[in-house]
Write a protein that binds this DNA or RNA. Structure first.
Length: 487
RNA sequence: GCCCGCAUCGUCUAACGGUUAGGACAUCACCCUUUCAAGGUGGAAACCAGGGUUCGAUUCCCUGUGCGGGUACCA
């Protein structure tokens, strides 16, 4: 859909917990947030939600940074870049949450609880048995003075939200009106016994303090949104808009996750995918551009993106679609750009790669394919494939010999600098032999590459030079007329 | 168990009550072609079911079904 009006700048955030590598599911949500910010001229904020000490992963935040930066999803405020609301790491804001927790206690919107995990579990089991929703029974609500004494004496407790009665409702940006009966909603823990906040408290406090206008997050957060709404109200704050974007599914139709073997996003980099292709492919999961063209530059996506157009149903990620998009993005590159990228990829001088780029560009779907295609050219000796027929089908040994010799003779006379001329002259030989070009040229491919396919072979000869080409032709001849048979 | 969300070709999607239901990926055929690709042309392929509302439902409402998500001192 084409935007028919300019949207007000959105301040959005991506707030991962640094508990491991980001995968396509996480990053697609980050992408939608980033796009919403860029499309409206707003800000994209990165915040690290590391309030769970038990899931601390050394360097987890650095992986997040690297992933986002590789894709070009740069943040305007956040770790390593700073900003007016620093720090952007929740573990460094611990005191803040405690302060706001106390405010809720003072206003009667939260209370302390010392129930044991065992009691809570038994309570939930019983509720389930009775067909009731599982929620805290407020057993501790009447013991606040007692618990306060316990805390004053150095004892621990958790702080719970006192979920108000009534109905929670909001107009979700991607789904329209969603409504919950608060009677179904649990009195969630806000501060854990280790003094750290839970997501629910931290996200509300930070989103408010950081002036977030649109909370763009994945749909698994829908059921806890009433808690967040209750917190905004308890604090007397205006709630931001909520956009619950659909989750990304794996081939098993389950939410993409590490335990389901979701690939780390950075693995796509090492597999030879371009950032722009990943972005293009991810953007198409839940969003579609106007018109029929779906191979788009990042700029073009930014130009057309509107979070309001994201639709609600979950999407299965299709790796083949990514392949196709990646191949298209590679073909969109100039020869120089591709030579530079391949130079880094293959650790070779881009200038030396430049003449090969036109031969590669339409033949590769990932950068890794370039290494495979170039291997026969760069290797010192021809590596014959184990199951390669030589001479190839529909060609006799005599015909193959004639061709190889014609090729050798031509190169001796003209060198390898004129691929077109060489091909033209060799075609005459092919015709005189009564062969189909398709069959006949396989002989040459095999001789040069050790396999019947590859980059255009006469161009490859030009790169290889007369000497090496002649050597390969001679070696192939040996295969047709082995010395042992001549004895 | 309880709550919530979702539902168009195999997959990603378009459609904002009236269309031969469009496109892309994948797939099949043909063309082009020095191999392989790329490119071109064409084919096969979808509105979950049942009730309403309406002159008319893929589209709006309800129910069912299916799939998914949540139900923690994880996010």
């Amino acid at each position: 859909m084409q935007r028919d009006h300019e949207l007000a700048p959105m301040r959005v955030r991506f707030a991962p917990s640094p508990t491991g590598a980001l995968h396509l599911g996480n990053v697609r949500t980050a992408l939608f947030s980033w796009l919403a910010a860029r499309a409206t001229g707003g800000q994209f904020i990165l915040r690290i939600e590391d309030t769970d000490q038990e899931r601390y992963v050394e360097g987890g935040d650095l992986t997040v940074f690297e992933t986002l930066r590789w894709l070009g999803l740069t943040w305007d405020e956040g770790p390593e870049v700073g900003g007016p609301h620093a720090p952007y790491v929740q573990s460094q804001r611990k005191a803040l949450y405690q302060e706001y927790g106390e405010k809720l206690v003072a206003s009667g919107h939260a209370y302390w609880c010392t129930c044991t995990p065992d009691r809570l579990e038994a309570m939930r089991l019983e509720q389930q048995r009775r067909g009731q929703p599982t929620r805290y029974d407020r057993n501790c609500l009447a013991r606040q003075e007692e618990i306060q004494a316990h805390r004053d004496a150095g004892g621990s407790a958790v702080l719970r939200l006192r979920m108000p009665e009534g109905i929670s409702t909001w107009d979700d940006v991607v789904r329209g009106t969603i409504e919950f009966s608060n009677a179904e909603i649990d009195d969630s823990v806000l501060l854990k016994s280790d003094g750290f906040p839970t997501y629910h408290l931290a996200v509300v406090v930070d989103d408010h303090l950081m002036d977030i206008t649109h909370v763009i997050r994945s749909e698994e957060w829908i059921p806890s949104t009433p808690k967040h709404l209750a917190l905004y109200k308890a604090f007397g704050w205006d709630a931001p808009a909520f956009a619950h974007v659909p989750i990304v599914l794996g081939p098993d139709k389950k939410k993409l996750s590490k335990r389901h073997g979701a690939k780390r996003l950075l693995d796509y980099r090492s597999d030879g995918y371009l950032p722009s292709a990943l972005i293009n492919a991810m953007a198409l999961l839940g969003w579609s551009p106007p018109g029929d063209e779906d191979v788009l530059s990042v700029d073009n996506i930014v130009k057309h993106f509107d979070i309001h157009d994201v639709h609600a149903s979950p999407a299965v990620f299709d790796p083949q679609r990514l392949d196709s998009i990646n191949a298209h993005h590679i073909r969109l590159l100039s020869h120089e750009e591709l030579a530079d990228i391949l130079g880094i990829w293959l650790t070779r001088d881009p200038a030396s790669l430049l003449p090969l780029v036109p031969l590669l560009q339409e033949r590769i779907t990932t950068l890794a394919d370039a290494a495979t295609l170039l291997e026969p050219v760069f290797s010192t000796a021809v590596q014959w494939g184990t199951d390669v027929a030589f001479p190839p089908k529909n060609v006799t040994s005599e015909q193959a010999l004639t061709l190889l010799d014609a090729c050798s003779t031509d190169i001796a006379a003209h060198g390898t600098g004129d691929p077109t001329g060489l091909r033209t002259r060799l075609t005459e030989t092919v015709t005189s032999l009564g062969l189909k070009p398709r069959d006949a040229f396989r002989v040459i491919y095999c001789a040069l590459f050790g396999q019947p396919t590859g980059i255009p072979v006469f161009d490859a000869m030009a790169v290889l030079g007369s000497e090496r080409t002649a050597a390969r032709l001679a070696a192939a001849r040996e295969r047709l007329v082995p010395t042992s048979e001549q004895v």
